[in-house]
Design a protein around this nucleic acid. Structure first.
Lengths: 264, 264
DNA sequence: CGCTTCATTGACGACGTTCAAGACATGTGG
DNA sequence: CCACATGTCTTGAACGTCGTCAATGAAGCG
C-alpha cells in the first residue's frame, strides 16, 4: 500500500468512553478563513500564496451533506469542484443489476471533480456527515491555468490517487476475503493515526457499515461479517460495539493481510 | 469504460493475410525528429510549441526492449521518465507468493514515471517489442515546472488514467469471468480502431498471451481459456490462430460484457 | 525430430455467494 | 413499561463459480 496517510479526522474533546478511544469524531468548522482551515496544509490549495488564498476565499463556499446523501450522480453536470473538509465520502459505480463497487474513499483534504470535465464519471456519496469547500468550476479552471501552485499540487494529488487505485486493484483482483479484511482494518488504523502518535492506534472505529465495506472490498456483507467474526474468534482483533475495533496482535493482522514490504 | 481510445498502433503495408486483417503490427520509427513522431499528437508533449520541442529533442533518446523484458522493477531508482512510442507494456504488482495483478496496460503515447518520485512503485514489463522515448528525470522535471503546456497535458493524461483505473476496479471487484473476457475483447477491439474507421473492427489481434490476460483480468489462465472457448462455442466470436479474434455478434458480445451505457 | 512455449480441456475441491433465519440495539407509540 | 417495527449485524446451510492440478494438443525452432 502507498503510505499517504491522512488522519481520517482530528479528534475533539476528551478521549474517554469506557476506556475506549474512538476516533473519527468530526470537528466543527470554526471559521470560513482559509488560514484556519483544517485541511489547508494537505488540500489542493496547500501551496497557495496569500494572493491566491484571497482569490480562493472569494470564490469558495461551504456545503454540507448528511450521512447517506448523494453528492453527485454519474452523468450529472458538475458546475463545481470541491475539497472535502470534514467527514468521509465514497466514489462508486453501480451496474444495471445492482452490483456495486466503491472505487475510492474520500477523506478530508481529498479533491472532488476535475478541471476540464463537465460531467461526473462516478457516483459520489456522503458516508458520514460531510462538509465540502466548493469552487465554481470555471473560475477554478482559470486559477489552475494561471497558478502553478495549484496545478502542481493537483497533479501530485492525482498521481498519488492513481498509485492508491493501483494498489487497490491488487486487492480486488488477487487477495482472499481474509486478506482484504485484514488489509482494510490496517488501512483504517493507519489513517486514524494522529500526527503526534508514533504508530497506528490499537483501538479505533471503522468509518463504514458492513455493507459499505463489502462494496469497497468487492465482497458481500455476509463474507465481511464472517471474516471479522473469524479474526475475533482467533483473538487477532476484538470488537467494541458494531464499529469499534481493537487490534490484539498487529503482527498477526499484518500477516493475514499478505502485504508486501513497503517502499518509498 | 472511458473511451480514450488510442489505436494500439498504426498498420503498415497491405492488409491481406488469408482475408484476415490483423492489426497491431508495429511501425518502425522513421526519424528521431519530434515533428515526425507517431505519438506527437497524443503524448505528454502533444501541446508543446517549437521552442519546447527543441528542448525535448535535446534531452531525449530512444531505447528499445524485446517482448518479455523488464523495463522497471518496483523499488528501482528511476533516473528517467519516458513516453511509450511503439509496442505494448504492462504495469503490474506481484505478491510474495507469486500472485500477480496487472494494474495498467501501456500503449503508444502513454507516459511512464512521474516527476518528483525517485523509485518505481510498480513493475513495468515489455509485452511486445517496445520503444521508449526517454528523458532524464531532472531536466524533465524542470521542463514540467516551467512549461504549462507539458504540465497541463500530464495532468490531463493522469486524470484519464485514474478514471480508467476506476473502471477496471469495477471489473476486478464485481464482474464474472465471462463479463471480464467480453469486456476485455471489446476494449481491445475499440483500441484497434484506426482513425479512418467508423466502428471497432470485427477482426483484430489480442496483444496479450492467455497468461497476461489472466494477470490483467484477475483470473487464471485456465479460466481465460475456458471462457474464450465458451464464447467460440456459442458463436459469439471465432478464433484465427491463437491471438486472432473475429467478433461474430457485437450485440451479443456487448450483452455478455454487462456494460453500462456510456457517458461522455 | 525433440524441445519449448503457449493453449485447451477435464476432474475435483475450495472459497465466496445466495438465501434464509435469528440476534441485537434503537426508536416509536400505546 | 411493554409491544412492535426498523436497521444493522451475525450465523447457518446449500449451491455455484472459479482455482488447482494434471494431461493433452498445437505451433515454432534449433
Amino acid at each position: 500500500m502507498q503510505t499517504n496517510a491522512v488522519p481520517i479526522c482530528d479528534i475533539e474533546g476528551k478521549l474517554t468512553d469506557n476506556d475506549l478511544v474512538f476516533r473519527m469524531n468530526v470537528p466543527s468548522l470554526r471559521s470560513q478563513k482559509c488560514v484556519d482551515c483544517p485541511i489547508r496544509h494537505r488540500a489542493v490549495c496547500a501551496r497557495c500564496d496569500e494572493d491566491e488564498f484571497l482569490l480562493l476565499e472569494d470564490m469558495k463556499y461551504y456545503r454540507s451533506y448528511e450521512a447517506g446523501q448523494p453528492i453527485l450522480w454519474r452523468g450529472d453536470e458538475m458546475p463545481n469542484v470541491a475539497s472535502l473538509v470534514r467527514g468521509v465520502a465514497s466514489i462508486s459505480q453501480t451496474m444495471e443489476d445492482g452490483r456495486r463497487q466503491m472505487v475510492g474513499l474520500l477523506l478530508p483534504s481529498d479533491f472532488i471533480g476535475r478541471p476540464g470535465r463537465e460531467r461526473a464519471p462516478f457516483d459520489v456519496t456522503a458516508v458520514t456527515d460531510v462538509t465540502l469547500c466548493c469552487f465554481k468550476r470555471r473560475p477554478f479552471e482559470t486559477l489552475v491555468d494561471e497558478s502553478p501552485n495549484v496545478s502542481k499540487r493537483l497533479l501530485e494529488m492525482t498521481l498519488d490517487e492513481l498509485d492508491s487505485a493501483r494498489d487497490w486493484m491488487l486487492l480486488l483482483g488477487r487477495k482472499t476475503a481474509r486478506e482484504r479484511i485484514a488489509t482494510f482494518i490496517r488501512m483504517v488504523a493507519q489513517r486514524s493515526q494522529l500526527p503526534e502518535e508514533e504508530d497506528s492506534p490499537n483501538i479505533f472505529e471503522l468509518p463504514l457499515t458492513r455493507e459499505a465495506m463489502a462494496d469497497y472490498l468487492g465482497l458481500t456483507l455476509e463474507t465481511v461479517s464472517r471474516q471479522i467474526s473469524a479474526l475475533k474468534r482467533e483473538n487477532i482483533i476484538c470488537l467494541h460495539g458494531k464499529r469499534g475495533i481493537e487490534v490484539l496482535s498487529q503482527t498477526r493482522l499484518a500477516a493475514e493481510a499478505g502485504e508486501d514490504a513497503f517502499i518509498d
